[in-house]
């Protein structure tokens, strides 16, 4: 090395080798599809399921039914969007079904005591956030695996809900504005669906367009790298569980409003349904890879399946069986088709 060539150190004075065509081409549509293979495969599943039920039943492809699906799946969609953040950091939140139950029971109880409904909503969201913060503290600051912390949370929170209600469900006066949240229609659309869509839009923007969303993905990919970049990874990790807890609380409020009662037995297995929707959508359980769009499609696929099987006069017990198979096949497709083609190109 003799002279300094500050602008481009590698600019060779004379080429020894013949020029070759560039080795990289611009990404084509096909490249982009393959890069987003997980979302594409769940989109295909979703469309196939919708098509099957549209042809197989008269009632499926009607406006009231579709809106009803959306209304019923609102809690699932909201919790799944939040769970996408959790899983993308490489974590998991098993406590959300219990939080949903506690919130639905507590809100019914508080309304019975005459606490004004807006205050009940605020208190319940704070309650979900606080449970998330406590769990997040043990995960992010004490380094205990999320699976263990939230498994304990699942047990403790469900137990608390049972203790508060004595195992009974508590009715909510159907005149209360609280039930409006679960039952009202606005502009011809169910209010729960509107709330869910709003939350999904916020989740999408936060996940893809903010620093926080970046760090959520980064922490799942390489936590130490994000820490060394000067980011407070612990508060970021804690925040993800606060979001999850608050989303579960919102889901509980909507559910209690829709059913007109609060029950400590609500949301049994809800966490697994939510995790299934997220994984179905293509978010990696190992962290670092997440997609809100995939999660929406995954949650809607689960919801449409449940609805369509009932409309087709098949046993609703088939829903979990079919869901399970679809999870297996969709993930298998991702691994085989899309990853495979990426490698062998």
């Amino acid at each position: 090395m003799t002279g300094e060539t500050p602008s481009s150190p590698q600019a060779a004075p004379a080429r020894l080798h013949a020029a070759a065509p560039p080795r990289h081409r611009q990404a084509t549509v096909a490249d982009r599809l393959i890069a987003n293979g997980s979302v594409v495969s769940i989109a295909v599943f979703f469309l196939v399921v919708c098509l099957l039920f549209s042809v197989g039943t008269d009632a499926f492809l009607t406006r009231p039914n579709l809106l009803n699906v959306l209304r019923q799946s609102a809690p699932l969609l909201i919790a799944a969007a939040a769970m996408t953040f959790v899983i993308t950091t490489g974590g998991i939140d098993l406590s959300i079904g219990s939080v949903l139950a506690l919130v639905s029971a507590l809100s019914a109880a508080l309304l019975q005591f005459g606490v004004p409904w807006p205050l009940v909503i605020l208190l319940m969201l704070a309650c979900g956030g606080l449970i998330g913060a406590i769990q997040g503290y043990f995960i992010a600051y004490e380094g205990i695996p999320a699976f263990i912390v939230t498994l304990a949370g699942l047990s403790i929170v469900r137990g608390t809900a049972l203790l508060v209600t004595g195992g009974y469900s508590i009715p909510i006066d159907s005149g209360s504005p609280f039930v409006v949240i679960g039952r009202a229609w606005v502009f011809g659309v169910p209010l729960p669906a509107l709330i869910a869509v709003t939350m999904l839009v916020i989740a999408f923007v936060v996940f893809n367009e903010t620093r926080f969303g970046r760090y959520v993905t980064g922490i799942g990919a390489n936590r130490e790298a994000v820490r060394r970049a000067g980011v407070d990874v612990r508060i970021t990790t804690l925040a993800v569980y606060v979001i999850s807890g608050m989303a579960a609380a919102l889901a509980g409020i909507i559910l209690a409003g829709r059913l007109g009662s609060g029950s400590s037995n609500a949301g049994q297995g809800f966490e697994l349904e939510v995790i299934a929707a997220v994984v179905l959508g293509g978010t990696s359980l190992f962290g670092g890879r997440g997609t809100i769009v995939g999660t929406i499609l995954g949650a809607l696929t689960v919801a449409v399946l449940a609805n369509g099987l009932i409309l087709a006069h098949m046993s609703p017990f088939l829903t979990p069986i079919v869901t399970g198979f679809i999870i297996l096949v969709a993930i298998w497709l991702n691994f085989r088709l899309f990853r495979g083609s990426l490698r062998s190109r």
């Binding site: 970046r214 980064g218 790298a225």
Partner: peptide, 23 residues
Amino acid sequence: MVYQDLALCDTVDVAGNLFLGRE
């Protein structure tokens, strides 16, 4: 610092890694 064990996020794109922490 350039760390010996690189400290990059594999699933984040090139620009995202260059600007990590000061996007």
